[in-house]
Write a protein that binds this DNA or RNA. Structure first.
Lengths: 197, 197
DNA sequence: TGCTTGCGTACGTGATAACGTACGCTCGTA
DNA sequence: TACGAGCGTACGTTATCACGTACGCAAGCA
């Protein structure tokens, strides 16, 4: 009816380009994929939206996984967060702890990278800080400069510049800067726990 | 007819799991996605193979891109190219690229942190470098010092010091140091694709 | 010119995807 | 027990996907 360009998500154009790049005819790809040549033609021109079944077969004929084929036409495969354009935590007015999140706020993001700066004697875990982590998540922290103490589940571990620590992020924990004069900077990677089914 | 399990690529099961994780009913997702509840039910049970159109709408209702949704069920079937067994990469004798892996080789580790150093004009992806990443994985790179160009899926992105980029790590990609004089250092976080539940 | 070979696309038919409606089911609640 | 309210699924109809066939077209060769 009104399906003027509903199906045109760009996949068709991409398929045609890939097929051309492999110098295959519609019938060639038809034989490889098990999808009829007229069907391929319609899909390539965006006149119809194939089912996942046939789309998967088409991708296979192009020696791709369907997700790979589709991803080519989805923006967001590459996301750049400029140093000037960061999500920042609250300023370190009182706590002496400030941080910025380096990874974009995309769904499907499974690891979050953040940089934390601790003033002398400052401690993470103040009000406004990310309170806790999802069960099953793990955290890796790399000391960029200065010195940092990790207090995790009651135990205290002192880390020097360049040291790297990995621990279960769903345990109660916080970082401290034990120095009296020097700022400390650390990078934290929090990887989410696996989803339950 | 014979369509016993033709449509069962597992995506239905995955949709049902994701919907449950968000504690949504079929009608909830129906409203969000614009796909009827009975249709969703059939898709979830693998009784029918949705078109790319509706599959895309379903993914949107789950706040995912279709490629992300599909990728979750494809990783199990694919051969895994392990990045590296050793903790340290080869010395940068010729390529001008050396790296070290900062995270421990523990089972259950879902994010790997590594630091890469690129000599002037050096390029990653040489022989001995980790060739590619597991399907479904994503990579985040932070430029510690110098300047770096990311070439991902044919497109080139130039990053300055402090910039951070996130992209699908199973796309063909490599880093270059475009400078003639200065070394470049970058941190890379590779988060593995989700495994089957 | 005429024939052949290959390309991509219009056509008509059967299969099926997608919809709206309505049913059976398990809960809390009166 | 009765009764909504919520869930997921069976049913029948319509839209359309997917196929096989057949057509128009351009290029290579007698």
């Amino acid at each position: 009816m009104l399906a003027i360009e509903l199906a045109d998500s760009g996949v068709g154009t991409r398929i045609r380009a890939l097929r051309g790049a492999m110098s295959m005819s519609l019938r060639d790809l038809a034989e490889r994929s098990g999808v009829s040549a007229p069907m391929l033609s319609q899909v390539e021109r965006g006149e119809t939206s194939p089912t996942l079944q046939v789309a998967s077969r088409i991708a296979a004929g192009l020696e791709l996984r369907l997700s790979q084929l589709l991803r080519l036409d989805e923006d967001g495969a590459v996301t750049i967060v400029r140093s000037s354009d960061r999500r920042k935590g609250p300023s370190a007015a009182k706590s002496g702890h400030r941080y910025e999140i380096l990874t974009p706020p995309l769904p499907g993001q499974r690891a979050e990278l953040s940089r934390h700066t601790l003033a002398p004697r400052a401690v993470t875990g103040g009000p406004g800080d990310p309170p806790m982590h999802e069960p099953g998540s793990r955290e890796t922290a790399l000391v960029e400069s200065g010195s940092v103490a990790l207090v995790c589940d009651g135990e205290r571990h002192v880390l020097g510049e360049g040291d790297c620590v990995t621990f279960d992020a769903d345990l109660p924990h916080h970082f401290e800067n034990p120095a009296d004069n020097n700022e400390a900077v650390l990078l934290a990677v929090v990887s989410a726990g696996l989803r339950r089914s």
